[in-house]
Nucleic acid binder design. Sequence first.
DNA 1: CACTTGACCTGTCCGC
DNA 2: TGCGGACAGGTCAAGT
Length: 319
Amino acid sequence: MPELPEVETIRRGLGRLLPGKKVLSAECLDSPRSFPNSSSEVDNFLHGASVTTIRRRAKVLLIDFDSNYTLVIHLKMTGQLVFVATDPVYTSASEIQSEASHEASIATSSTDKLAPRFGGGHPTDSLISKLPDRSTRVIIKFTDGSILYFNDQRKFGWMRLMPTISVPEIDFMKRVGPEPLEDSFGAKDFIERIKRRKGTTIKAAILDQTVLAGVGNIYADESLWAAQIHPATHVSDITDKQLSQLLVEIKKVMNLSIAKGGSTDRNYVDAEGKKGSYLQFANVFRREGQPCPRCGATIEKIRVAGRGTHVCPVCQMIQ
DNA sequence: CACTTGACCTGTCCGC
DNA sequence: TGCGGACAGGTCAAGT
């Protein structure tokens, strides 16, 4: 769930909302799991610090403070970061809620199967007014009365406060591959990296974060469909030309998703509590039993690389 | 060493 | 209607 396009959407939202805000307090409701820093670290480097910039690397969000500390956040599958402007600008929160409601009604009108839902089925507009809820893990309050909620149903997500200068030293940061949307990342580099995983399937290879950053299950299935490559194809059986096309499709699919505010499958929302609409444009993901938009064959759901995998059995032929 | 599987969690959905 | 169990997937640790 949050994959690169979702995390990027959140980054852009928080980038509009947070810079300049000064932290009043930070509270972890399931301490220390979701936010294991010591209270002295939080007191010394978060309380009273102001947000400078919001960055993203792979699926990791980075909130920098003028204390030269950074909140490193991984949302894993069900994590949310939702910003709520309470008093003194209560009206702006209301505007956000009505926008979210509008978008949710559009999304719901597409197909029942894809109608995004939230927890127990609450519409998005009720989310903000009901926070905190039982999925809330961390509450960060700012001096102007606004609040940032870190929610995570499944408790896989986490945040850590650490010196900004130490962020690149995190194991994950050292190992993670290049950003697929960087212009400087091209076919040659992609092909070479994929071929390091020649003993496995192409889906496992593009899901490997050390090969390429940010691809998760949704965009793996969608880009492989677009490139007409069966997800279970062994890397050694794919031509350079096909890999080159696959990179084109990965970039296309991710850019489209960012433009649509990401994918809301079950509970992803952006920084303002809004759902993403990309799944309305998905060709295979969660569309098993429906006709392939390209050839009309019935889309199947199979298991590849330990994941539920959506594939057209006709036009994504194993080579 | 390369690769695969299981664990971490909780809410939802399906079948009995 | 209630309940058990399968399933969802990002990442790391453990197993093959």
